[in-house]
Amino acid sequence: MVRYILKRFFMMILTIWIIATLTFVLMNAIPGSPFNEERTSNEAVQENLERHFNLDEPPIVQYFIYLKSIATLDFGPSIKKPNSTVNDLLGRGFPISAELGIIAILVALLSGIVLGVLAALRHNGIIDYLAMTIAVLGISIPNFVLATLLIQQLAVNGGFFPVATWQSPMHMVLPTLALATGPMAIIARLTRSSMLEVLTQDYIKMARAKGLAPYKVVIKHALKNALMPVVTILGTLLAGILTGTFVIEKIFAIPGMGKYFVESINQRDYPVIMGTTVFYSAFLVFALFLVDIAYGLLDPRIKLHKEEGN
């Protein structure tokens, strides 16, 4: 177990390093200095700016400065927002994005599991078809399309919810719904198919035969085992939710990290792009690491090293 965790930990650090290096190489591959378009600056200003951002150093030195900045979690100043550092933006945006993300993933998990279990219990019944239609629709409608439709129908035409921003619980409903629907659909499908498989097992028949209440059979015996596949895709879902926040925050004008990231892309604010990319990636890779460990702990059948197949 400890060996496995250490191995996974090493892989995690390696992955983060690769992402960081990739980011650095790619950003340096862009021709020209980020300040070339600034028309007002004369040569002295240009030089000062370059010194300020360490751009006058040779690339290899810049690379080590950069690696050090990542290791110390200090991503440096923003180019386009002179008064804030990347850390300021992360500090301001991340709590809001995290709030949105956590609510969305909880909603997705809860409703997805309920939908999947109901569908499996009423296999080939109306509820099953209904749930699976919702699920395929949820997978097929892109989150940004759903978001705009929700605003148009429920906020502008219906007036039930505020159109945008992130202030009261009422403001949170539409963004959460838009963000959670896709993952919910995936969870529902997965829960359904794995529940269907588990429900045919002998120990379920046994539990029923000994006269256990139906809900106890479902929750204690079936669901507990059926949820294992859901645990394995939590990492992927988290990645989906995280990238989903980019567009959702843009549409709803939520001042989260995703909005800053999109802004930095459109303004070509390279330090912010690099900082957020590395931060996002490290966050995701760490989440995947935790999911893997959790999976090993939850399922006694896993010997904690994957060999054949997946």
Binding site: T15, R268, Y280, L284, L288
Partner: peptide, 19 residues
Amino acid sequence: VEILYGLPYLLVVILLLVV
């Protein structure tokens, strides 16, 4: 493959397109 699989897909895509 494992390492590539661990990279966040859309982030890499965005990064490449920026460049």
